[in-house]
């Protein structure tokens, strides 16, 4: 049986190993991913992001439990769920402690749930690329819902949010992260806002701040830059990001959150936005790949030391970075003369 056939047949070990190959960007894995690609495009991809310790994993645990326990549902009708939990790598050792499973122990033993932990590995753009690959593989083998947990509010999270159809931003009272969230522009990527730890003093305040900020932001809110307002408004269904309070440890607010996630999926499907987002998502993935490939190809074609030589000239301010790259691209030796002449 071919690997793809094995995967579609539910060989979980082969699948888990494929995810490792994708994460490591090994050629065998990437080739297999290409073979799987025609089977992607069905899953609902949901990003869950927010500052450290806001309760994302606890929330995901409860949410998945809820989604898997829809009353009266037969096993075959229940949606299968994959969780991708991303934690930062240590900048010092390159290692990582991936601890999100601690809070997801209730999900153990459910064959309809698959959890995979990933380290950010610090590479610029690399995480988004690896996550996108892992998510595609999960999608291809048939998971109905894929939840991606990421920490923080930096560029990496925004990039990951772009791989999601629905982005849930989690905050908690008393962490000052309502301000942080606004600063980092994370509100702009939020389709659903959650104030978790609503049992803690100060939750009302956090809820109020978020609601007010959203209201103030909305008239000028161009969304993600790829939300084509006119088109969406023409459909008569502008999405208003709801703000929900939850107590993940007790399961409070979880059914509401689950409902809002499903409602957002319907919203995307009913409006033209699903297509718009898919198009934008795939475009940015292709552009990223193109950039990587062109860079790699360019580098291998350079004679040894040529780039370093150019770098040196930029360091000594004989050339600007732009001039250096232009010269390298043109493959001219003229730049030698030029920069020599300036002395």
């Amino acid at each position: 049986m071919s690997l793809v056939a094995k995967l579609m047949d539910g060989d979980r070990l082969a699948f888990a190993r494929l995810l490792t190959q994708i994460e490591n960007e090994e050629l065998v894995g990437l080739d297999c991913l290409s073979d799987l690609y025609p089977h992607t495009g069905r899953a609902h991809i949901v990003g869950v992001t927010g500052a450290p310790g806001t309760g994302k994993s606890t929330l995901v645990n409860r949410l998945v439990l809820h989604m898997r326990s829809v009353e009266g549902g037969k096993e075959a009708e229940r949606e299968t769920i994959a969780v991708v939990a991303v934690d930062p790598s240590s900048p010092f050792s390159g290692g990582a402690i991936l601890g999100d499973r601690i809070r997801m122990r209730d999900l153990a033993g459910d064959p309809g749930v698959f959890i995979r932990s990933m380290a950010s590995r610090g590479a610029l753009g690399g995480l988004a690329r690896a996550t996108a690959g892992v998510v595609q593989a999960l999608d291809a083998v048939g998971f109905d819902i894929i939840l991606i947990e990421t920490v923080g509010a930096g560029q990496a999270e925004v990039d990951i949010a772009r791989t999601a159809h629905t982005t849930v931003v989690v905050s908690a009272p008393g962490m000052g992260d309502e301000v942080q969230a606004i600063k980092a522009g994370i509100l702009e990527i939020a389709d659903i806002l959650v104030v978790n730890k609503a049992d803690i003093h100060g939750a009302d305040n956090t809820l109020r701040v978020l609601r007010t900020t959203l209201q103030m932001a909305r008239p000028t809110r161009e969304g993600r830059g790829y939300l084509i307002r006119d088109e969406v408004e023409a459909d008569g269904v502008m999405w208003d990001p709801p703000v929900l309070a939850t107590v993940a440890t007790q399961g409070e607010g979880i059914p509401e959150l689950s409902r809002e996630i499903a409602r957002h999926r319907s919203h995307l499907r009913d409006s033209s936005e699903w297509r718009v987002r898919e198009g934008e998502r795939i475009r940015s993935e292709m552009e990223l790949l193109l950039r990587d490939h062109l860079t790699a190809r360019f580098m291998t074609r350079q004679p040894d030391g040529r780039f370093e030589e150019a770098l040196e000239r930029v360091l000594t301010r004989k050339l600007s970075p732009r001039q250096a790259i232009t010269a390298l691209l043109e493959g001219e030796d003229e730049w030698h003369a030029k920069s020599e002449g300036k002395k």
């Binding site: 050792s93 290692g95 990582a96 402690i97 991936l98 499973r101 601690i102 122990r105 932990s117």
Partner: peptide, 8 residues
């Protein structure tokens, strides 16, 4: 330098 999945 290892990636450690800690399950508790």
């Amino acid at each position: 330098g290892m990636e450690v999945i800690y399950t508790g």
